[in-house]
Design a protein around this nucleic acid. Sequence first.
DNA 1: GGATAATGCTTGATAAGTGAAAGGAAATGG
DNA 2: CCATTTCCTTTCACTTATCAAGCATTATCC
Lengths: 137, 137
Amino acid sequence: MLDKTDQKIIEELTNNGRMTMKELGEKVHLTGQAASSRVARLEDEGILEGYTIKVNKQKIGYSVHCFINIYTRNIHHQPYLSFLDLESEYVLNNYKISGDGCYLLECRFPSNKELDAFLVQLNVHVNYKLSIVINQS
Amino acid sequence: MLDKTDQKIIEELTNNGRMTMKELGEKVHLTGQAASSRVARLEDEGILEGYTIKVNKQKIGYSVHCFINIYTRNIHHQPYLSFLDLESEYVLNNYKISGDGCYLLECRFPSNKELDAFLVQLNVHVNYKLSIVINQS
DNA sequence: GGATAATGCTTGATAAGTGAAAGGAAATGG
DNA sequence: CCATTTCCTTTCACTTATCAAGCATTATCC
């Protein structure tokens, strides 16, 4: 499905998603047009899902990064999931997991103040265990 | 530091990091050149750290996504961290966290076979608790 | 085996975007 | 009140993207 050239394209675009097709072509030994049509194919196949940016969240005031293990008390998860939708400003990811707990929730907050308010509301729906990210290596 | 326009720019580029500056300008009611110079400033300030792509990892053969709570047995973490460097193909993130455990390790594997081999080696350095992602909502 | 089709590339012309320079409007400060 | 700064727009030369056409290689089918 993916040949060496496709893999290289994915690698290059992961490092710089805004590189010109001409530049990308040079990296993978193709013309810009050929590179462009391969990228279009990767998009059509749903392998390349989109383009985005890496933002320094600390610099824009979201410095508290945490993971929250969720333990549902109720067989109905919908209230919890609906709550996440409302608080989506803070939610990065919500993973349904095997192992300890039902979900692993990844969030970012401007400060402990917002985190605290979030946890109070969260506790209406579920129990939780909080882990704060100290560093990322 | 960031005005409304900057925030909108970040939002738009998060949704489509490859949009043209002209297009971005229209979204935020500026000319392409003005948008471009704001983006350049965001890059200089380190707020916009780079451009990348979203890849469907399942489609390229990395279908097992998991989080591993790491419990170090030894005060020296370096052997564990060096191990991660060697196995970086599978490692998405390694967070130093508060709460249960010392690290939260996020990985992706082509199959349980590679996961198993990874865990065997991991156990040389640390104890762990495994959570497999079933779904992402 | 040879015609046919399909795939993936290159080439070339046109349309579109980018970047640098020049200039103007609004806010800031002596 | 004028000078300065900041941020924007306009213009133009230049680069890049896009589209269609053409060509080579490989696969397919009778």
